[in-house]
Computed example of a mutant assay.
Amino acid sequence: MAEPPAGRRSRFSPGALRGVPHAGLIAVLVIVVAFTAMRTETFATDRNIVNILSQVSVNAVLAAGLTLLMTAGGMDFSMGSNVAVTAAVAAKLLASGQPTGWAVAVALLLGTAIGLVNGLVVTFTRVAPFVATLASATLLDGVALLVHDGNTISIGTRMFALGNNKLLGVPYLLVVAVLVLVAAALVMRFTVFGRDAFAIGGNEHVARLSGINVTARKLVLYGTTGALSGLAGLMLLSRLGSSSPGGTAGLSLQLAVVAAVVIGGTSLAGGYGTVTGTALGLVLLGVVANALNLLDFSSNYQPVSVGAVLLVAAVANEMHKARSARH
């Protein structure tokens, strides 16, 4: 049989995979999934897959806002602590008999206000975002403890539907997370605000000279991360049915979210970000946590795995930036 003309021969090569978006992340995810599926039959069931996606729903809402903010060169290390405070305040209101709508409104407004305060500090004092928001996180962790006063606050069956019911077999929490991620992706890709975020992250000085109101954009971004933190706090509260001091929010939640965003390829220096990559990073961390659980590893290995993956992703991020600069 005659060989096909040279011009029609397949040009696929392993090197061509470098051009595929998130190829490395997808490859790691496939390897982890395949390995875990071979070791335990429980992993590949529909119920377990939905469980994984539900568990990362709260992280997904936070990661969507953080992707936008980091693309613009910002950072908010207080989102996890914001979740702790808003969940505690909402639980306190619900436990005292206040209407659900009032508790939801207060949580969202409180989260937004916290985000705006961070934005004001970062924008007008020129304090590094990392330092300002880390200080804010420490302060908010203390506030959450004061609200709890050492006690777990139970809300009974209030907000039970959001945390436990399903729509066509899909948990409400997952529906909310997907809607937030899609909205963030659409904003980044198709709106002037999204383009401005990329421009600010790429070069803030040039962005100002081009007529972009950098201050206003930053305040909106920090306010958005705050509002999404409030929403995540309500989601977490509805899933757990209570808020407790030293619960699942705080720094541990924040590090998992930062890890997912960085793993997904969003630049730590700003100027580049992708919601698709963030979603893949969320799924990878969720799968790793689930695999450790199913394979009977100690729960102490989970923070170790998150920290290791975050370190590798950060190094890879910087190497990619260096290669881009050379070319």
Score class of each variant (00 low, 15 high):
residue 243 S to K: 12
residue 187 V to D: 01
residue 310 L to E: 00
residue 59 N to H: 13
residue 247 G to F: 08
residue 146 L to G: 15
residue 182 V to A: 01
residue 151 N to V: 10
residue 175 V to A: 02
residue 153 I to G: 01
residue 75 M to A: 14
residue 218 K to V: 06
residue 83 V to Q: 08
residue 314 A to K: 05
residue 65 G to K: 05
residue 135 A to F: 05
residue 321 K to A: 07
residue 117 V to H: 01
residue 275 V to F: 13
residue 231 L to H: 11
residue 167 L to G: 14
residue 26 I to N: 05
residue 36 T to S: 09
residue 184 A to K: 05
residue 261 V to G: 07
residue 254 Q to Y: 04
residue 231 L to D: 02
residue 89 V to H: 03
residue 204 E to Q: 09
residue 161 A to C: 11
residue 84 A to G: 10
residue 227 A to E: 03
residue 147 V to G: 03
residue 213 N to Y: 13
residue 210 S to A: 14
residue 80 G to F: 03
residue 177 A to M: 08
residue 250 G to V: 02
residue 325 A to W: 02
residue 236 L to N: 10
residue 100 T to Q: 14
residue 78 S to P: 11
residue 30 V to H: 10
residue 280 L to S: 04
residue 175 V to P: 07
residue 195 R to S: 15
residue 277 G to T: 01
residue 178 V to Q: 00
residue 215 T to L: 07
residue 132 A to D: 13
residue 301 Y to R: 09
residue 141 D to R: 11
residue 161 A to L: 13
residue 142 G to P: 12
residue 116 L to Y: 05
residue 145 L to P: 12
residue 282 L to K: 05
residue 188 M to K: 01
residue 287 V to H: 02
residue 224 T to F: 11
residue 147 V to A: 02
residue 284 L to D: 03
residue 102 W to R: 02
residue 139 L to T: 10
residue 11 R to V: 12
residue 16 A to K: 13
residue 183 A to M: 06
residue 26 I to D: 08
residue 11 R to D: 05
residue 137 A to H: 01
residue 237 L to A: 04
residue 50 V to L: 12
